[in-house]
């Protein structure tokens, strides 16, 4: 187990290096002048521009810049944004909010997605099954920002059930609706995935054996079938965390949440390279760790899979 984790951590290093380099190269090519608009209604004095460019290593060629950045990154320093605020500080605040949002989205996914999938799977071909299949297909085909804006409109503005926007405290109640919107497409995918696996596993020999030896249907389905059907679902949730963090950009924009997504979007607009690379690097690292965690979870779900 320990060996496996160490190997996985080592494998992460080239991925992080490659991904940050890609992002860095793209940000390096971002058009526009980062000092534009920093000195009010007139162009910045040349001395200031020179100092600014020197401070942020903007005069070096791409590889040298990237090297210097990596040097700092290795010491846990994400650099300072073009506004002079350490990126780490900016992210620490916002990561809590986006983290809450993403975790609540995962909770929606597992609760509703798996429940609907199991229900459809054990009632295959019945009304509830068709209802789940059709409704999930509908949810998948509607873009998330349409779902978000419409739910905000009807549940938030018209009926007043949920707060329309999220304050900087980002309380549980305020995040209920946004996290549901963020999770909506994934809920649909998970319901379908769970259903498909349930249907397949219910036909398996070990379920027939379990019933034949006198187990109740509840125990045969709940313990044996469900546990075996969940492995691909857990994999999906792990991969989906990346999509959730990316998708948060859209949700945070609709509900005015002060999270990582909004910060990233603003930083791209402000040509703030250091902030963009730092944010994306953090996202990629979180994503990779989430996947490692999922792989370790396999062992818990299925003792046949071991990491030794």
């Amino acid at each position: 187990m320990g060996k496996y984790i160490v190997r996985r951590l080592l494998q992460m290093i080239p991925v992080i290096l490659g991904a940050t380099f890609l992002i860095y190269a793209m940000v390096f090519a971002l058009p526009g002048d980062p000092t534009a608009g920093k000195c009010g209604e007139r162009p910045c004095p040349p001395a200031y521009v020179a100092k600014f460019r020197e401070e942020h290593n903007l005069n070096d060629p791409l590889l040298v810049q990237y090297g210097k950045y990596l040097g700092k990154l290795a010491q846990g320093d994400l650099g300072t944004s073009f506004y002079g605020i350490p990126v780490k500080e900016e992210l620490a605040k916002r990561y809590v909010t986006t983290g809450k949002l993403a975790l609540m989205a995962v909770a929606w996914e597992t609760l509703i997605g798996i429940f609907a999938g199991v229900l459809a799977g054990i009632r295959k071909g019945k009304f509830i099954d068709n209802l789940v299949l059709v409704s999930t297909l509908l949810v998948i085909s509607i873009p998330v920002f349409v779902i978000g804006a419409t739910l905000q409109m009807f549940l938030g503005v018209r009926m007043g059930l949920f707060p329309v926007t999220v304050s900087s405290q980002a309380t549980f109640y305020e995040l209920l609706l946004p996290s549901f919107v963020l999770a909506s497409a994934s809920v649909a995918y998970i319901a379908r995935l769970t259903r498909a696996n349930m249907v397949e596993n219910l036909r398996a020999d070990y379920v027939r054996t379990a019933i034949a030896k006198g187990l109740t249907r509840r125990r045969a389905v709940g313990l044996h079938t469900l546990r075996n059907s969940l492995i691909p679902v857990v994999t999906y949730i792990g991969v989906d965390i990346g999509a959730l963090l990316g998708g948060a950009i859209v949700t945070e924009r609709i509900f005015n949440i002060q999270g990582v997504g909004g910060f990233l979007f603003r930083s791209i607009g402000a040509r703030d390279g250091v902030a963009v690379v730092g944010t994306v690097t953090a996202l990629v690292v979180v994503y990779l760790f989430a996947n490692l965690l999922v792989d370790l979870l396999y062992g818990v779900l299925d003792p046949r899979i071991s990491h030794d």
Binding site: V15, A19, G242, L245, G246, G247, I249, L264, I268
Partner: peptide
């Protein structure tokens, strides 16, 4: 692996901002 680590939407936003 490297490309899979960058979420589609995130990379798309960066790319479109660059060009």
């Amino acid at each position: 692996d490297i490309f899979l680590a960058i979420p589609l939407l995130l990379g798309g936003i960066l790319f479109m901002a660059t060009f």
